[in-house]
Design a binder for these strands. Sequence first.
DNA 1: TTGTCAAACGGAGCCTGCCTCCATATGGTG
DNA 2: CACCATATGGAGGCAGGCTCCGTTTGACAA
Lengths: 188, 188
Amino acid sequence: MSRPMRADARRNYERLLAEARVMFGERGVDASLEELARRAGVGIGTLYRHFPTRDALVEAVVRDRYDGLTARAEALRDADGARDALATWLRLLIEGAGTFRGMSATLMATLADETSELYASCHAMREAGADLLTRAQAAGEVRADIDTDGLFTLAHGIAWAHEQREVDDPERLPRLLDVVVFGLATRD
Amino acid sequence: MSRPMRADARRNYERLLAEARVMFGERGVDASLEELARRAGVGIGTLYRHFPTRDALVEAVVRDRYDGLTARAEALRDADGARDALATWLRLLIEGAGTFRGMSATLMATLADETSELYASCHAMREAGADLLTRAQAAGEVRADIDTDGLFTLAHGIAWAHEQREVDDPERLPRLLDVVVFGLATRD
DNA sequence: TTGTCAAACGGAGCCTGCCTCCATATGGTG
DNA sequence: CACCATATGGAGGCAGGCTCCGTTTGACAA
């Protein structure tokens, strides 16, 4: 293994991460990295040393959330009502995507780019969700002509579009998701 | 009225418009305006004189398409099957949005910004679509808890998400739209 | 305690893109 | 053909991304 980080390195790493949480919350994941470094009291070069790309920084900020989503999907595997389980999970997914503005866009881009630092955790989460979809389809509760890609396109499309409109009716997003979930149901 | 444009002005205007059609097609509506001006053989100042904002340029490029959509919605007003009419129109809408990359995002932003040069034609088109929605709801064919905003959020959300994935299966987008349209149906 | 050096720092500097301003050029008209 | 309103175009200011490299420093061995 590699030796532990030097004390100053670790300190700067933590500062950057803390500031990223704040600024991503305030301004979304497209916040200026130069300003982020400044606010963290660190040089821009140091920021890039720790996080070579914006995705790497985003990844560090959201990883635990994704791991949680993955775990949650696994917990829902054996729930009654495969479509309900899927609906529940999708709701968690898009609520999470709404935490930081621009997150849905980042996610969609990541799914198409295996070299992204975000890819691994994003992919694991996605596979867990895919499993819920497959089960619901096997149970005959969800139409068979939608694949994982289609599911995520629908979910993130809604999440993205919702965040564009700056409406803060908390019922809005769930209602839109409800339209999609109902549309996913097999027809008589 | 204002007097007609000077010959050089008209010529440059046309060149810019022609080049915009090309570059928006190649690279989407976020193409570099500096390069666009260069390729049109015109100074950057001239571009901004004719089109003070990017939206103004986009508007000039897509206006006739929008007018067509508006007219189409009016033609569909009295069609049999209010939900089918809505579905047909939505399909045209999102296919149009897919012509240039970034168009859906531009549209969503425009709907929230009345000062945008794109707003007028965009708004007219939207109202025409809203009318189709209202009719389908009045006929009891579409659930009543979705408003115009929700409808456009769903439609553009899908269109946007679809354009992020660079899949060229032409059946994909209609299928996703079908999920949403089915989800919009009133439940028994 | 001190010397050594890999590891880390940080910001100057280069790039690209947006947009404004204004000195210069020119088409159209009397 | 002279005049000038209209139009041109690019220099320059701003912001953000990212790299490169001279300087600093923490950790460890002597």
